[in-house]
Design a protein around this nucleic acid. Structure first.
Ligand SMILES: [Mn+2]
Ligand SMILES: [Mn+2]
Ligand SMILES: [Zn+2]
Ligand SMILES: [Zn+2]
Lengths: 145, 145
DNA sequence: TTGAAATTGAAAATCATATTCATAATATAA
DNA sequence: TTATATTATGAATATGATTTTCAATTTCAA
């Protein structure tokens, strides 16, 4: 059974908050987990709806919030204002290279950049909590089109 | 007369697009320029309103868009979804250190980080167009509070 | 099994931003 | 100047994404 960890985390979180399990929450979790993409709420809604047509939009939003709260999912705010959700659990921190033509996401991480950010923050007297680095450009495939 | 450059740019842009100058546009430009901060549309609206009470909200949005289009102003999307506007003309590219307690903005730039970003993008076959680096943390003043 | 508490989907409410529209201001040409 | 065509304005309304409300349904611990 894949994603056993994530299911456990979700169930534990729900119990710890005195919430209740539900069919819908598990269906949304299922579809979210098996879709390894950077999804908008709407895209996730469509995917879930396709398989479980009675799902409501509000339940998608409500469940996405729970998934973020328990560390399974994380929110990604893009330059054009859209919000996308990606897997968090089991994924190392990474930054994003995003193609402005085709929308492709490439996950990258440069330990040197990470280190320099810490240094920069310290120099200004900040204790760094998190950061976001998004690089927008044109990917190899889109260059000759 | 301060900000002569910016006024020229704005006027030239307006003429080039066959738009018309207006009292309101100049008033908004004035207040925007003399406020060296990272402002939300609402904050700018309040500031302008204080001095020119007849101004409408829509005119703020419309003018902010013009200011961005002509390169005087640039939009900054934060992690919490708010959009802030900052001076662009005459300001070098920079990234942001933001205090999650008091909201302070510190403008920083590390040429080494910039260089490594280019390298990273090239390695993935991307032609980099722009990037955004925001670092969130706790500033020196807020640390002991 | 029961019943209090949480969850659901649909509809309505929010909130920031954009658009509409009737009136006013601006710019260009006579 | 003045005429007139065009654009800008503020108020009101619309929009779109997300949240909240609410009555009906489901969950789960006793
Ligand atoms: Mn990612
Ligand atoms: Mn800045
Ligand atoms: Zn591409
Ligand atoms: Zn601070």
């Amino acid at each position: 059974m894949p994603f056993e960890d994530e299911r456990q985390i979700f169930e534990n979180y729900i119990r710890s908050k005195n919430l209740k399990q539900s069919k819908q929450r598990m269906q949304i979790l299922e579809i979210f987990l098996k879709t390894e993409k950077h999804l908008t709420a709407e895209e996730l809604y469509r995917l879930v709806k396709r398989r479980f047509p009675s799902i409501g939009y509000a339940t998608i939003y409500r469940t996405l919030k729970l998934l973020c709260d328990c560390g399974i999912c994380s929110e990604l705010r893009l330059d054009d204002g859209t919000i996308r959700y990606e897997h968090l659990y089991g994924h190392e921190h990474h930054d994003h290279l995003i193609c402005i033509k085709c929308g492709k996401f490439v996950e990258v991480v440069d330990p040197e950049i990470e280190k320099l950010q810490e240094k920069l923050a310290k120099k200004e007297g900040f204790i760094l909590k998190r950061h976001r680095l998004q690089m927008y450009g044109i990917c190899k495939e889109c260059r000759n089109k």
